[in-house]
Amino acid sequence: MIRWIRVAVALVLVLALSASVYWGYTLFLLATGLIVFGVAYGWPRLTDSPQPRATSIMLALFGIGGLYAAWHDSTAPYLDWLPVLAGLGLLWTFVQNLTRGIGASYAVANVSAQVSGLVIVLSASTWVAAITIPGDKEAIVIGLASLIVAQCMTALPWPAIYTSPLAIVMSTAVAGILSVLVFAPALSLASALSLGVVMGLLVAAVDRMLGLVAYAKFQAANLEASQNIEVKKNVEKARSFAVQLALGAAPIALGGVVVYALERLAS
């Protein structure tokens, strides 16, 4: 049941992005900001960061910075400031972890997790870049629809050996149907099917990789440290929601890279 929380999170984000595509650029920017805040809050809890608040602040600041930079970039490729932000984010990550001390435990794992979170929040800015590219925006809507369908498939209570292929097949089918019945001839069937396949692969891969992180031994560290049963329950509930929030928002943030690449190729 708890796996469906990520689907609910993804559905809210997808609906916000899909609707704002046609309602205005500013609304789309705000909807993309929800993705950033979802990842910023959930990622440190998913990876069991020893500095969750500092990491959340860092991810939120750089994620919003990426959105702002893409919003104000009026010339292709619309992501000129992204390398600068990535470099500054890496510097922040190393400095933040140095404050824990030279002999801090799991330093490599923590740095790796924080850098991964940085990549994901900066990826959200590609949605803003994608909508900035002149032309039709059907690829954005089809990509979002494929993402949510794939998320639903991976949330089914079956082994990943079944849900992962199902996610790819269903996301591809939905992309093809939308291309033929709704958005023809703005987006070719071949492009739509390719988009569906990649989105399905993306969601399946994120589900497999981050799902393993969610059940890693580090996730139980704070719970074992607590001797109070009620505190354990409260911490577990809060962490479970944050973990599902990250698992729901991360594929959508990364999906922007795919849509942006398709829009750039088509422009």
Score class of each variant (00 low, 15 high):
residue 69 A to C: 09
residue 223 L to I: 13
residue 153 M to R: 06
residue 18 S to G: 06
residue 217 K to V: 15
residue 220 A to P: 01
residue 29 L to H: 01
residue 223 L to T: 10
residue 74 S to E: 11
residue 177 I to P: 05
residue 160 A to I: 04
residue 17 L to A: 03
residue 5 I to L: 10
residue 21 V to C: 03
residue 224 E to A: 14
residue 245 L to W: 09
residue 260 Y to E: 10
residue 125 S to R: 11
residue 3 R to L: 09
residue 1 M to F: 01
residue 35 I to C: 09
residue 161 I to S: 05
residue 40 A to T: 00
residue 33 G to Y: 12
residue 208 R to T: 10
residue 149 V to Q: 06
residue 204 A to K: 01
residue 56 S to E: 00
residue 68 Y to G: 06
residue 67 L to F: 11
residue 51 Q to W: 05
residue 207 D to M: 04
residue 29 L to V: 05
residue 90 L to M: 08
residue 76 A to Q: 06
residue 81 W to S: 13
residue 231 V to D: 13
residue 234 N to W: 10
residue 59 L to C: 03
residue 142 I to S: 05
residue 127 W to F: 03
residue 226 S to H: 08
residue 60 A to R: 01
residue 104 A to I: 11
residue 180 V to I: 13
residue 149 V to M: 12
residue 88 L to P: 07
residue 263 E to P: 12
residue 103 G to P: 08
residue 222 N to P: 07
residue 97 N to I: 03
residue 113 A to N: 09
residue 79 L to Y: 05
residue 205 A to L: 07
residue 240 S to L: 13
residue 202 L to M: 06
residue 102 I to P: 08
residue 218 F to N: 11
residue 209 M to R: 08
residue 220 A to S: 09
residue 62 F to S: 02
residue 12 V to C: 07
residue 58 M to L: 15
residue 65 G to E: 08
residue 99 T to F: 12
residue 214 A to L: 11
residue 44 P to K: 02
residue 52 P to N: 02
residue 160 A to C: 00
residue 12 V to P: 03
residue 62 F to G: 03
residue 163 T to Y: 00
residue 169 V to I: 15
residue 16 A to N: 04
residue 93 T to C: 14
residue 57 I to N: 01
residue 126 T to Q: 00
residue 209 M to P: 12
residue 62 F to Q: 01
residue 6 R to M: 05
residue 105 S to H: 06
residue 167 A to S: 07
residue 182 V to Q: 03
residue 194 S to F: 14
residue 244 Q to N: 11
residue 174 V to G: 01
residue 151 Q to G: 07
residue 32 T to E: 04
residue 221 A to Q: 13
residue 150 A to Y: 03
residue 41 Y to E: 00
residue 19 A to C: 04
residue 17 L to G: 06
residue 239 R to H: 02
residue 218 F to M: 13
residue 2 I to C: 01
residue 22 Y to D: 10
residue 204 A to F: 02
residue 25 Y to E: 12
residue 8 A to V: 07
residue 140 I to A: 09
residue 191 S to H: 11
residue 35 I to L: 15
residue 179 S to Q: 08
residue 46 L to G: 00
residue 186 A to I: 06
